[in-house]
Design a protein around this nucleic acid. Sequence first.
DNA 1: CAATTAACCTATCAATGATAGGCTATCATT
DNA 2: AATGATAGCCTATCATTGATAGGTTAATTG
Lengths: 219, 219
Amino acid sequence: MPKPGLKETVTDCPAPAQQPRREQILDAALELFAHHGLNNVTTRQIAQRVGISQPSLYAHFPNREAICAEVCLRAMDTLYVMLTTALDPLASLRTRIITLGRNYVQFGLNNEAAYRVAFMGDVTGDELPERDRVMGAGLRAYEVLYALAVEACGGESHDCALLAQSIWASIHGLVSLLLSCREFPWVDIDGFIDRHIDILADQLCRASVQQSGPSMRQI
Amino acid sequence: MPKPGLKETVTDCPAPAQQPRREQILDAALELFAHHGLNNVTTRQIAQRVGISQPSLYAHFPNREAICAEVCLRAMDTLYVMLTTALDPLASLRTRIITLGRNYVQFGLNNEAAYRVAFMGDVTGDELPERDRVMGAGLRAYEVLYALAVEACGGESHDCALLAQSIWASIHGLVSLLLSCREFPWVDIDGFIDRHIDILADQLCRASVQQSGPSMRQI
DNA sequence: CAATTAACCTATCAATGATAGGCTATCATT
DNA sequence: AATGATAGCCTATCATTGATAGGTTAATTG
């Protein structure tokens, strides 16, 4: 019983210890999502790319949304890593916020699907919990920004929270707009990004000098 | 010509000349979209609300997307009207940008579905042309902001375009974030909005004084 | 070797957008 | 008033898509 066929699915790949199915599925999904957008990819497409039948996906994930969620979650984790590892604690506040901003924008432009799910309400299905998990992962990125605002304001405060949220809104607007209006005649995208981030840096630094000027909090 | 039965569909409503079917469909769709989101409303739901069969929709619109597009297009038209009529040409630049900003944000929060289609890439189907029409209508709102930037900069220029786009990104970010992260613990939404718009006003006014200060462009 | 388990596959659902074809009533023309 | 055209609807039916049911194969375990 040599049985040469049939087993191919598993023994196809020579030696490299064959990536587990679950990972293969996530990889295939990631690539398809990046190419066609989260909502233009069917479970059948994912399955075909992996080389298995469509129902087989459900042996590894409870539903389509879980696949989307996991792909996006992993992406948001890399965002957090990008933001934290890029910050040199010895650099000036201004340098750090600029670095943070550039990394944030770069991530958004390179990980559209995940960014949309986390921060643009791009829903992957009717269920909220999955999206909330992705958003939660994304919010860790906000925490990094918030920490900078705390430092600029010399401690946590109402104003400090407002500052952080305002800067977040501005930089998110940049990413969101670039993603959504790709064919808009931007004067000069790179210049636009740099300029916009510069303005945010100004905003943060203004708060910083205001705080260190009087050198005394009111109370 | 008594003929009391059957004709009800048309003679049901007493005198008010019965709104045409097409309008009824758009009204029903608008309400459902506002309630459940553009992508969570089926053609059957729309039809049921109007009181006709689902295939009958296709006598008035080529497809579902056309219904979405028309609903959103009309909404974006009201945005343009809101922005233009609210601007008192005699008011200060600062007053006008603040008014513009507040109206823009208010519109976005009250017309989520349309705003998402126009500026957040919320696709109503696979077809792009319909979405482009909606975005085009939305871009007229940007033109109003752009005009303010031109005024602040004392004429069109590269910097003026950058200024307008930067302000647009910031205010769009505010709307987009509030729409997408509804459960985020915003310190104080109204304060956040006002503060954010104030900062945009500063940005615009700074460009204005810079221009009128030296009183000479660097040719 | 038997039993368990993991991973698949085929067949099939239900929901959804869309099409085909026929019925009814109004209206213009004779 | 009879006739033909047209508008507007309806029932039946598709194809696509996410998801489930039930059975089969093969590796693991006792």
